[in-house]
């Protein structure tokens, strides 16, 4: 075997697909040829360097962008699968987005930091006078209508409203959960 043959057969040899007879001849050549030994060393070193190259990182918006594209695909599927339906398109689109949001939530949440929000507890009516003063100072924005009176009864019961991520609201009905009614009414 000469050097040219060695280089031609090298891929089979390196990847283990050469016959035993060829492997024997390759090894025999290697034992006597400095140049081919160097060739092998260079290819091996190159392979190892290639495998040690850092893999490129995906940008942070990769997942949201892909998710958005898949939303659109799902919307189209929903619409095209309902040829005879009289349901308004926006309702269909809404359901599609809802299902996708639920479907992707676990994947996204596994890559993001989850923030738990405390329930907001409201047990007395807001100070209306202050709010009105702020509003009246920018009349051009509010308009000419007098501010509506808040129904003070609305605030007599202590109620707790849970605020949770959008997809959770659809998973767990009802969305707003009044409690404390047994103490007042």
């Amino acid at each position: 075997m000469d050097c040219s043959n060695f280089v031609i057969k090298y891929t089979d040899y390196k990847d283990g697909s050469a016959s035993a007879e060829v492997v024997g001849r390759m090894q025999e050549h290697l034992s006597v040829c400095e140049s081919c030994r160097r060739y092998e060393a260079v290819v091996e070193c190159g392979s190892s360097l290639l495998r040690s190259l850092p893999r490129p990182e995906l940008r942070e918006d990769f997942q949201p962008r892909l998710q958005h594209r898949l939303y659109n695909l799902q919307e189209k599927r929903f619409v095209s699968n309902l040829p005879t339906s009289r349901a308004p398109t926006f309702a269909v689109v809404g359901i599609a987005m809802l299902l996708t949001a639920v479907a992707w939530a676990p994947l996204l949440s596994s890559r993001m930091t989850a923030v738990e929000l405390e329930p907001i507890v409201v047990d007395q009516a807001p100070a209306l006078t202050t709010a009105r003063q702020v509003g009246s100072s920018s009349a051009e924005m509010v308009g000419d209508d007098p501010p509506e009176e808040l129904d003070s009864d609305l605030w007599h019961d202590a109620r707790v409203y849970d605020y949770s991520p959008l997809f959770r609201r659809y998973e767990n009905q009802p969305r707003n959960r009044p409690v404390g009614l047994e103490s007042g009414r």
């Binding site: 329930p119 047990d123 202590a158 707790v160 849970d162 949770s164 959770r168 998973e171 767990n172 959960r177 409690v179 404390g180 047994e182 103490s183």
Partner: peptide, 17 residues
């Protein structure tokens, strides 16, 4: 003021998660 519903929901959320 009863907060039991909140706890149940929390537990349900944890089970679901």
């Amino acid at each position: 003021m009863a907060r039991g519903g909140g706890k149940e929901k929390l537990v349900a959320d944890r089970v679901s998660t």
